[in-house]
Each structure stands twice: as structure tokens, then as C-alpha cells.
Design a protein around this nucleic acid. Sequence first.
RNA 1: GGGCCGUUAGCUCAGCGGUAGAGCAGCGGACUUUUAAUCCGUUGGCCGCGGGUUCAAUCCCCGCACGGCCCA
Length: 493
Amino acid sequence: MEDNDLLKVRREKIAALKAAGIDLYPNDAKPQNTTAQILDEFGHMESENLAELSQKFSLAGRLMAVRSFGKAAFVKIQDRKGQMQCYLAKNVLSEQDFSLCKKLDVGDIVYVSGKLFRTKTNELTLEAQSLRLMAKSIHPLPEKWHGLTDIETRYRQRHLDLIANPAVREIFIRRSLIIKLMRQFMDRHDFLEVETPMMQPKAGGAVARPFKTHHNALDQDFYLRIAPELYLKRLVTGGLERVYEINRNFRNEGISTFHNPEFTMMEFYQSYATYEDLMSFTEELFCFIAENVFGGFTFTYQGTQIDLTPPWRRLSVRDALIQIAQMDPDDLTDPGKAIAFARKTGCDVKETDPLGKILMAVFDERVEKKLVQPTFVTHYPVAVSPLSRRSGADPDLVDRFELYISGREIANAFSELNDPADQRERFLAQLKEREAGDDEAHEMDEDYIRALEYGMPPTAGEGIGIDRLIMLLTDSASIRDVILFPLLRNKQE
RNA sequence: GGGCCGUUAGCUCAGCGGUAGAGCAGCGGACUUUUAAUCCGUUGGCCGCGGGUUCAAUCCCCGCACGGCCCA
């Protein structure tokens, strides 16, 4: 417990304020303006015109700076929209308000009302006619010039980060805008937003390790979902035809600059569409967002210019392996050669692994990073796609794509497998892999197969990793910079 | 899980074998147009935690905790 001189001084101030009859935490002031709104509206008005305004303005927010003179002070107030300077003067404020002004600390929440004027240096400033304390701050804020840079403190005490670092606030405002735009786009295309279970008896719909939890009253284990897929497809079977969900998935895996154990996905399903339809749909969605965020289709991510102008490059897994990973066409069909190549490139593959899985290991190792400009990778092996529809031209491939931008997977989509017999076979193949030691392989899900047996319309579905998309569009190097409260190890006192 | 780096005042950082420094913040004083206000004075530290080496450790060594980056 922190108990230094700074806190002692604050506690003494609090006692003095209380003794003077001042409520430290009132809730009866309603600011009529915001900083940015005043600056936008009156920022260009001349001094003479400002003086003629009869209007009174009121602001509330956090005191970010105090430049105090004997009988007057300039202060900076920060609200949700930005910062604005206010002037507190002895000959304008009541005696009581001016004495309050002398007791305020940087970090306090205050309310001011008064009129606008321009200072000698021409800064639009609110001259306070009244001043109120709205919430007392006990702890000192981070330093005014360098702000808060300690990464651990920024994540553990995000409130401080948001107070001290305006750029951080901007990232989360943009995050909200992007998600709003996604909803707008989906709604315009007649998709229905739904919510499906986070707690599932089986963690299906993806290949990943789940978190386990327990329901006491039912005395039953549940898994936090690794994907909403199987539930969303039940809704399509139920006739909802076009659905989407924006929500959290949970994967019990390592943490890195691109992985948080809980992350946000938009997953959506459209009946009577194919994975090829979703490619152009994705291009349109991303362009719609970029247009609204940047006013164009290009942006810079970590020093590299990314161009979203459609159409995006389309590349089959086979071509990628030959052209980028420099595999020989024979390596792609001969499991022995494929394993040899994979091991040579440093992949940890087993003799029992299906060929498709070995090829994708090479892809992850050799190709992924090199797909910088938006690229749809297509024609995935059936072995790594237990829920995708087989390709008409080649039953060993599926109608699926993954979208790569800046060397990272951003989206995964496919024409859905709606043949219940084939689905059962795929689950059985996954069970074999599970028996061979792959604890991420998909489980058998009879209940899901039964739903398919009622007939699911032909459908294509897609998942978009929202955190990663937002990293791109905010030029953030770490996923923790776009998640308000990233998972951290508990720190014991 | 492995490698490298970090942890010193509320914040941002110096110091790296001889017992703790700066700027900002704070406190006291001056000041009614400042813009990181200025000027004078001043308080503040289990130098992440635990061992070891040494006459002496914030500094060197080992372990632990937390974090960062890279790799799996």
C-alpha cells in the first residue's frame, strides 16, 4: 500500500475541503458543451465577436494542467472530446470558488461555466464565472510531458493510459468506429445480428485448445467457445439464411503480439453464396471501412504501404508452395518428399500426419510472412478443413480461402459442408488425428450432424479477426494495443 | 517452453563496487494573459524480491516474480 508524502498531502487537502463544506463527489452538474465542440464552433471567431456573445458555456472534465499566478490561473480541462484551456481569475469568480481553485490538484474532475474570450496569444479560452469540484483525485497523474510509457502499467491501469496518452484514446475510438461500420455494412446486406453460446458442451467450429469451466447446478463441464460456427450454421438451417455475430472467442494458447487468449471475431453466414462470392464481399467490406477511416484504400502499417484497391491477388495453396516456398511439384503429391521438405524447413511434422497438414505446415513457415499485400489464398487441402465443402473439381481440396495482409491471417472463409454424411466422415478423420495425439483436432458432434440432416441450404461463411484488422487500421504493433484490457499474469501484492 | 532485454522517487530517466541523482509532479514563497509558464526555496527512495561473493552490492554472481521483444 502506497503511503507516501504525496498521499498525505492529498488527504490533508481533502480534510480541508470537507471542513469548508465542499462535497467531494457531487452529481448535480450537467455540462452543456464539450471541449471539441466549443473549439470547432468558435475556434475561428474574432475576439470582438466573442465578446458580444451572450451565450454561457459549461464544461466538465479532468484538470490536466494548472498554470497558476497569484490571483489568476490558466488550467487545461480534458473531456471525452479533447482539451480546452480555461481561465480562473479572482475578480471574476466568487470568493468561495476562487479559494476552491487554490486547493485543486491536477487530476481532479471539475465543472466550469462562463464565457469565451481570446488570450494575448489568441487561444480560445473559457473564462470561468463559476467553478465546482465534481470528483477529487487522490493519486498524482503521470508526468505531463512524457506521459505514461511503462507498458505494464499502461495495460494494468488502462484508465491512466487513457488519461495520459491521447493517441491511445484515439485507437479505441477508431476501434469502435470500425466495428460500427462493419455492423452498418452487414445490416445493409440484410444480415441479422445474433448471439450464440459462449459456454458450449463441446468446443467446436475451429481447431484449437479450449478453456474448460464447470456449471455447479448442472454439475457439468462446459468449454468457452473457440468459435461460434456450429451454432451460426444451426441458425442458417433454421432459416435465418444470413446471420452474423461480433463477439469473443477463447483459445487456450500462447500469448504474443498477435494472440490474446480472448479475441474478437466477426463470423457471418450467407445462404446461396459461395466462398468466391465472399471474396468480393470481403473486398467491398474492407474498402467500405477504409474509405470511412482513411478516405481511401491505402494506408501504412509499420512502415509498409498497404493497398486495398480491389481486386486482390488470388493464389492457390499449390501455387504459393511452388512459387513462394519453392517446393517441387512432386513434393506436393508424395508424402515422403513432403515430410522431407517440411523437416528441412524446420517444421515439426509427424509421419502419421496427412499430406494436407504437412503442406500447410510448410505454408505457415515459408509463405505466410511473405503475403504482405492483401491476398486470398485458396484451394486448401481437405485434411485441414473439416467443415468446408469439397471442391467440385478435386475432392482432396475444399472451397475455402484465407485472407492474408501484412503476413498475417485476417480472415478465413469457405463454402460450408452441408452434406451430413461427408461431415460425419470428416469428424471421423479428425478423431483419428486426435487418437494420433493431436489434441486440437475437432471432436465428433452428433447433435450438429443431426441438424445438418434436416437440410442446411448451400451457404458460405467467414470469420474476420477484428483485433488484427484493427491493428492494421491503427498501425498498432501489438494486439495488446487494440484490446483495452489484454490478459496479463496476476501480480501478487 | 527457450533466448535476449528491462524493473532506481508519484511519473520520465541517469548512475553500475565506496552507501542515491536530475527533470516533471508535490510542498512553502512571489506573480492577473500562461502554453512543458517563470523565479526563489524545499520534501521525497526496502535502487522488484530472496540468496551468494566482498571489508563494502543499486552495481558482480545465482534463483524467483512481473513485463517487453524474438523464437517454438
